[in-house]
């Protein structure tokens, strides 16, 4: 790890000042991703601004029935929170399906949004990677591509976003609150992460001087919800495919549907096309399959990840079948 200076911010203004004043500075939350990447010499900040003691670790119930989650709330506390467990079980399930008990005790909600990909070539500084070293090429295309995205990939990058939580947040229409010295703005989670295009190194809309302060969830959708993760081990592995779904069926017809996918997209993937196909359709296996196919119609595979298209379809169908 390169040497860097360390600044601990005690309030949001101090954090914003530090990120503006210090050259090449980065915010440090739980450190579960950033510290690892710094040790691998992939992230090289000159200053880290420790924000773990900012007073942003509350879950607040909002008058409209939604909740506001402080960005520095740790994942384990989010998953254990009674309001989250009772009203947004999908969120708790997503968090608990990720990482390990130890990592969930460290990792923060804001940090979860900022996770970087687990692409093997991104992690290897001897390999070409447009995300790590813009313009260097992509060694994953033509290399080991089993973990890669089938949706949203470009010729520059097919790396997946590794978060479980973000998939649930995408399904729930979460809003990300961002603050900088210029003020506060609110960005839908589905617009927070960017498609790779020609600039895979730019992963989010977050500006260099902006801080994630909160994630807001609107009131939960009607019906039942579920997060289902499919992976190579029974626990402690990143998703091959994950599905966040909220489904309501009235008189045998889908009256409300939210669907998002993990492990298959270059960003947390809200499955709008599947939702459009399902809304108002009979809640049958045929509808579920047709909707899944609609979403995956544009999927493009690399040599080792073709199975994800089939797996995503069968997982979507299985999840919706189980909920209806």
């Amino acid at each position: 790890m390169r040497t860097f200076s360390y600044v601990r911010a005690d309030d949001v203004d101090a954090a914003l000042r530090a990120i503006t004043d210090e050259p090449n500075a980065k915010f440090l939350g739980g450190g579960t991703n950033l510290v690892d990447l710094m040790r691998e010499d992939i992230e090289r900040p000159d200053t880290v601004v420790d924000i773990t003691r900012l007073p942003l670790a509350e879950v607040e119930e909002l008058p409209d029935g939604g909740v506001r989650i402080g960005a520095l709330l740790r994942n384990s506390h989010l998953a254990a929170h009674p309001v989250i467990r009772s009203r947004y079980p999908m969120v708790a399930q997503a968090v608990l399906s990720g990482a390990s008990g130890q990592l969930r005790n460290m990792a923060t909600v804001g940090g979860n949004l900022m996770q970087r990909t687990r692409c093997l070539y991104f992690y290897d500084d001897a390999a070409a990677c447009n995300k790590r070293e813009p313009g260097s090429g992509c060694a994953a295309i033509g290399g080991f591509s089993r973990s890669h995205a089938v949706l949203g990939a470009s010729a520059s990058c097919a790396a997946t976003h590794p978060s479980d939580l973000c998939v649930a947040l995408a399904a729930l229409d979460a809003i990300v609150e961002l603050r900088s010295s210029r003020g506060t703005r609110r960005v839908p989670l589905v617009d927070f992460h960017r498609m790779p295009g020609d600039t895979p190194e730019i992963e989010t809309v977050l500006a260099d001087d902006e801080l994630i302060t909160a994630v807001e969830l609107p009131p939960p959708p009607s019906g039942v919800s579920r997060y289902r993760k499919v992976r190579d081990r029974a626990s402690y592995a990143f998703a091959l495919v994950s599905v966040a779904a909220a489904l309501d069926v009235q008189d045998g017809v889908v009256s409300s549907i939210r669907l998002a996918l993990g492990g298959v997209g270059t960003k947390p993937w809200r499955a709008y096309q599947a939702e459009r196909a399902l809304l108002g359709a009979p809640a049958t296996e045929e509808s579920f399959r047709a909707a899944a196919r609609a979403e995956l119609a544009d999927a493009v595979s690399l040599p080792h990840n073709e199975f994800k298209i089939r797996l995503a379809e069968s997982t979507i169908v299985a999840v919706l079948r189980g909920m209806s």
């Binding site: 687990r118 093997l120 992690y123 190579d232 081990r233 029974a234 626990s235 402690y236 592995a237």
Partner: peptide
């Protein structure tokens, strides 16, 4: 990234 069996396996 090299998947040894974990407890749950």
């Amino acid at each position: 990234e090299y998947h040894l069996p974990v407890h749950a396996d």
